[in-house]
Each structure stands twice: as C-alpha cells, then as structure tokens.
Design a protein around this nucleic acid. Structure first.
Lengths: 134, 134
DNA sequence: TATAAATAAGACTTATTAGGTCGGGTATAC
DNA sequence: GTATACCCGACCTAATAAGTCTTATTTATA
C-alpha cells in the first residue's frame, strides 16, 4: 500500500544513471540492467516510455542507446512517474482515474481531506527534480 | 500504484463517522456498512483492528458497538494507517519492511532521495488529525 | 435462562494488479 | 549482410488486495 511500482523505481534508477553520464555518452538498456541487476526486458519497456514522452532520446542501431533529452533541472520526479504510469501519483482511484471509478464516491466523507493530502504529496513529487538525485 | 488500500479508506470513513456521532452514542459496524455501502465483514475486521490498537472502544453484546477512545485531535491519519496496515505509509518496500527485503538495495542509487520524499509524505499524514476531517 | 444482536478471529476464495517473459519487428554502424 | 541496439505488443505468473464464510464469545432483556 502506497508503494511506488518497480517500473517507477527502475525508471528512476535508469534516468538518473543517464543523467549522471558524461555529456554525449550514450547508455544502453543492457548496461543499466547489468549494473543494477534489473530485469532487462522490463527496464527496456520503461525506457521506451521515457523516450516516447521526451525525457530521453533514443539512438537506434549498433552503438545505439539513450541520452538525456533535456536538462535534469527541468525534469521532476512527478513527471517521470506520470510518463511511466500514465498518470500522476495518486492516493485514491477517484483521483487517479475518475469519480465514477469509485462505487461509493457520492457517499464518501473522506474525499475532501484526502484531496488535500493528495495536493501536498503531489507537491513533494513535483518539487524534487532529477538534478537533485544525480 | 501509491494508492491507499480499501481497508484504510473504510477505516477512515468508519472512525470519522464514530468521531462525528454525538458523544456517548454507540455506533455499530452494521450501521456504517449500510450507510456507506461498504462490505460488512471487511469493515468489521478493520474496526476490530482499530479497537485493538486503542483508537475506538468496543462494546460487546446486544446494543453494543463502538465509541471513540480518545480525542479526535490526538489521532493522526498516519497512526490510523499504521493501525490498519501494520506499518506507517511507505513508498518503498525497503522502508516499509527492511533493507534486505529488497534484492538491489546495495546497488540502489535512489534510496536516499526517496527517503527524503518519504519523510515529507510521512509528515503530511502525521500532520492531519481526525479532528480535521470530522 | 433462552434468545437475539453485537463483536472477535481466522481460514478461505476470488479479483486485481504488478512483475516478468517471449517473440517478432525496425534501424543502423561497420 | 550481420550484429547490436531500440520498438512493441501479447502473454504468463506471482503477489497482493478485496471480499466471503464460519464459528466463537459477549451481553441486554424478554
């Protein structure tokens, strides 16, 4: 409960690694999978998502790999989670998806306070940038 | 990912309801289950945990039920989660359980920044009291 | 003192999600 | 043309969450 997914953890480790590499140097998914003992296929898919969302640039073919697409100071942890999971970090389903994804939404007496907690948590993830973890 | 469990949601709805009742009035699990359309057995077990941890007082037998055990200002959302889940809200397994519950702990480059995020989130849950949501 | 209405507790089942794997495709340096 | 990388979706499996069932215990009161 409340845990980040492995996909997010792997994505953070990967993008941090790429951001920490000397500028210009291309990093492969395999390299990261080996170094951090992460399942290769799973990591690869996460990195593909990060590339698709414009956080990292993919270089295909032999000697291909990934490089960071923008400054580490412009990338928040929040936006990385959003790219990987498809939505911002959320503590309830009605926040992550929509009110009608919850069967007791109308009777729910805690949605307001939880919404407040949600805002605070969102801020925490939004405030920390990739540059802080390199 | 990052969602609170239904048990926690039900527990919060229940204890809020009890706290909102006129002082001295006893509330039953059935009453709450009916009112909020919550599965009775599941709710009952959650309330038993809250009683065991001293947040609510159980009254057995006919006309039994539950009443609040202490002031709503003394009960944090954090402590309610802890009572129901067995540990504080945590964003990683190595925090919720222990370092050796994670196979890549030693190689992990993100545990420190995530620890920082954890502290901030913990504070959010610790700061909000039951009295604020009644 | 029998009964009804409540909590207590644990085993069990089912549904959902997370984690991981596989196979076939495309791009490109050499 | 071949090796090495990314790309992408389908699939399987394991873990967790959610819900159900059963039996026991407590106690007010008819």
């Amino acid at each position: 409960m409340l845990k980040l997914s492995k996909k997010v953890e792997y994505g953070l480790i990967a993008i941090r690694h790429i951001a920490a590499a000397e500028s210009g140097r291309i990093t492969t998914a395999k390299e990261i999978a080996d170094k951090y003992k992460i399942p290769y296929e799973l990591l690869a898919k996460v990195m593909q998502k990060l590339a698709k969302k414009g956080f990292i640039v993919s270089h295909q073919g032999v000697y291909g790999g990934y490089t960071l697409a923008k400054g580490a100071g412009e990338i928040s942890i929040s936006s990385i989670i959003n790219a990987i999971e498809g939505h911002l970090p959320a503590i309830t389903q009605c926040i992550a998806e929509s009110p009608d994804s919850c069967s007791i939404y109308d009777n729910c007496t805690i949605k307001n306070p939880l919404g407040k907690i949600q805002s605070n948590i969102e801020l925490v993830f939004k405030t920390m940038k990739l540059s802080e973890i390199v």
